[in-house]
Amino acid sequence: MRNIAPVRALTRRSNQIKTLALVVAAIGVFVTAVGLFLRVVEFVVPANPNYGLYDLLRTVTLIAGIFLLLLALGLAIRAFTWKVDNDLAQIMGNALATQLPDSFTLIRNLSRGEIGYVDALLVGLPGVLVFRLMDNVGIFANEGSNWLRQEGGEWRPAGIDPTRECVADIEKVRQFLSRRNLGDTPVYGVIVFMNEPPRTQLMAREPVVPITPLSMLVVNLRPNYLAKDRIDAAKAQAVIDALLPK
């Protein structure tokens, strides 16, 4: 199995955001300086009929400058905290590498504007498999799309909703492929809990999206995603090329 992550593309995007943050910060400093200058040096005296408009102009200028500085700060934080890989996806990829043949490709840490962020996708002759990776610890029950967690011997709302998140990712991937004339590619999903029993225990009844601990991932995929080949190698490669950021 090929195990890849679009590190270069994500690093390039991070650098682009850093550059944008620098430009926005420079503009923000200039606009703020103009606003402060207009506050200190009054070019229109209070007795002038246009003083109200002048006061509004310098206030708006100052507020705009501060807004740009805050925007630059937000962009900088986003750029410097941009993850070029996913630790959980790396662990899963290493586990799958010894169990799946080279006809499969795992794409980790996918981030595309049209799709959003996806933990990982597996592309092979059976189609596309979207992963939602969970690092939660505890006893969980999944019925349909509902999630409960056992606390103190009682079942309470789990406070997580990986089913909804995974279904949303599946739909976005389907739409993405459809726009590239690959809409007939089957897209599946799976929720993988990375911690093993007894730290994490799972119970499921007719789940909307299959759930599994990492150690049983391939075994639990055999009745559905891995049951048969659905596309040829050329289409699988076309899907990979479409998904990977350029």
Results as ranks from 00 to 15, higher is better:
Arg8Asp: 13
Arg8Thr: 01
Arg12Trp: 05
Arg12Ala: 09
Arg12His: 00
Arg13Tyr: 10
Arg13Ile: 02
Ser14Cys: 05
Thr19Pro: 05
Phe30Gln: 06
Phe30Ser: 05
Thr32Phe: 00
Ala33Tyr: 10
Leu36Ser: 02
Leu38Val: 00
Leu38Pro: 00
Val41His: 13
Glu42Ala: 14
Phe43Lys: 09
Phe43Ala: 01
Asn48Val: 01
Asn48Arg: 12
Pro49Tyr: 07
Asp55Gly: 03
Leu56Arg: 11
Arg58Pro: 03
Thr59His: 01
Thr61Pro: 03
Thr61Val: 11
Ala64Phe: 09
Ile66Gly: 04
Ile66His: 01
Leu70Ser: 09
Gly74Met: 00
Ala76Tyr: 12
Ala79Phe: 00
Leu88Asp: 04
Leu96Ile: 01
Gln99Met: 13
Gln99Asn: 11
Leu100Val: 10
Pro101Arg: 09
Ser103Gln: 15
Leu106Ser: 06
Arg108Phe: 15
Arg108Pro: 10
Asn109Ile: 15
Ser111Lys: 14
Val118Trp: 04
Asp119Trp: 04
Asp119Met: 09
Val130Ser: 09
Arg132Ser: 15
Arg132Asp: 14
Leu133Met: 14
Asp135Lys: 12
Asn136Ala: 13
Ile139Asp: 00
Ala141Thr: 09
Ser145Thr: 07
Gly153Lys: 14
Trp155Glu: 13
Arg156Ser: 04
Ile160Phe: 08
Thr163Leu: 00
Arg164Trp: 02
Arg164Cys: 07
Glu165Val: 14
Glu165Trp: 10
Cys166Asp: 08
Asp169Asn: 15
Phe176Glu: 07
Leu177Asn: 05
Arg179Lys: 10
Asn181Cys: 03
Tyr188Gln: 06
Tyr188Ser: 14
Val192Phe: 02
Val192Ser: 00
Phe193Gly: 06
Met194Gly: 02
Met194Ala: 02
Glu196Tyr: 08
Pro198Tyr: 07
Thr200Glu: 01
Thr200Gly: 04
Arg205Pro: 12
Pro210Ala: 10
Ile211Asn: 00
Ile211His: 06
Thr212Tyr: 09
Pro213Ile: 03
Ser215Val: 03
Ser215Ile: 05
Val219Phe: 09
Asn224Pro: 01
Asn224Leu: 11
Tyr225Asn: 12
Ala234Thr: 14
Gln237Phe: 05
Ile240Val: 15
Ala242Arg: 01
